[in-house]
Simulated assay, not measured.
Amino acid sequence: MSNERISVAIIGSGNIGTDLMIKVLRNSKYLKMGAMVGIDPHSDGLARAARLGIPITSDGIEGLVKLPNFHEIKIVFDATSAGAHAHHNAVLQQYGIQVIDLTPAAIGPYVVPVVNLDEHRDAPNINMVTCGGQATIPMVKAVSQVAKVHYAEIITSIASKSAGPGTRANIDEFTETTSKAIEEVGGAQKGKAIIIMNPAEPPLIMRDTVYCLAEAGADQQAIRQSVKAMADAVQAYVPGYRLKQEVQFEEFKTDRPLNIPGIGKLPGLKVSIFLEVEGAAHYLPAYAGNLDIMTSAALAAAERFAETHLNKKIA
């Protein structure tokens, strides 16, 4: 294969977009930066892009379309907000551009790279769920690959300082999108998501807790092995992703079932998984693992898309 790369644009010059730009420049094998797009002409992200010689516009999606090199761009990352994404996607689809959505808008299918990326390589729009979803859904899937999961609940705890205005504006969408993806991608019959913004100083690294109620009699050793293998797979593109301790199990028999709101009393095997996500500190602080896992997952998806584009070109 030649050294040719696919040109990409990032909409959103805030923390997530800027971190993603640096990841594309430093770590990408198949991508090159075609444009950085924002709406604040004084944003640090646009200033950095300009210093690096990347085409920029502070006129949003309309400015992107007017850039001289727009026709070269094949993939666009949207790191803005769920509300803005619908308009951005409508414009980009007119030009046949593949869109990777880092907001909780969920217009396209939910994608967690280690779980279902290959199923959606040709999708015009994919949704990267949420930071909590990227961290925890692989664990729910690891359990559901071994045993039926009646219910899965995830609690994501992030440093308050790592939650920008976009994250704060999308809290409702976060819980709804993550809950649905736990079911659709993770394989749980019922999912629930909770997010906690911790104001502690110094800021704490992202932590995630995953609780699954699996069918009674599930093979504990097989679940442990599946969880470990999945954690290793995520770590391949998010180096700071790790299990904090051994997987914990608790059995609930028919004479002492677990009461789950909205479902009722169920016997089964409770599986508890404890995670930590440390950021790579490319642009964001190391404690902002919640933002780093989103940009890392989006980059992993774009790399696969670009590889597909290049293979089609060669064929």
Rank of each mutant, 00 (worst) to 15 (best):
E119R: 15
E215Y: 06
K161W: 13
A286G: 04
M1R: 01
I137Q: 02
M230F: 09
K141C: 08
S179P: 05
G289L: 00
K32N: 09
A86H: 04
E184Q: 10
E184R: 09
Q145S: 14
R168A: 14
G289C: 04
R207Q: 12
R224F: 09
L117A: 15
H87F: 11
A229R: 15
S144H: 10
T175D: 15
K180I: 15
H150K: 07
E119T: 13
I263S: 07
V227K: 10
V210Y: 05
E184C: 03
Q220W: 02
P55R: 05
L266A: 14
S226Y: 09
P239G: 14
I205V: 12
H150T: 05
K253L: 06
A35E: 01
N116D: 05
G132W: 03
I11A: 00
V76P: 07
G187S: 09
L67D: 04
A315Q: 13
Y95G: 06
G17S: 12
A188D: 01
L67Y: 02
M139P: 00
V91K: 12
L52Y: 07
G264I: 02
P41R: 01
V65G: 10
S28Q: 15
P109L: 02
A193F: 12
R5A: 06
Q245N: 11
H309K: 12
D101A: 06
L102D: 11
I11C: 00
G14E: 04
G83Q: 11
G289W: 02
D101E: 09
A50F: 04
I314Y: 15
P199L: 03
K244P: 00
V24T: 11
R304I: 06
A159N: 06
I126G: 09
Q245P: 00
Q134H: 04
R256W: 13
V149I: 01
E176Q: 08
N290F: 01
V277G: 09
A147K: 06
Q189P: 02
R48Y: 13
E276I: 03
H282W: 05
H87D: 13
I158H: 04
E251N: 13
H42Q: 08
I6F: 00
R26Q: 14
G191R: 10
N259D: 06
D232Y: 10
V91Q: 07
P267N: 12
L64D: 04
K141I: 03
I39F: 03
M36G: 07
L284P: 13
Q221T: 00
D122A: 13
A222G: 11
I126N: 14
I100V: 13
A301E: 15
T130S: 10
Q98F: 05
L102E: 08
E201N: 12
H88G: 09
R168V: 11
I16Y: 07
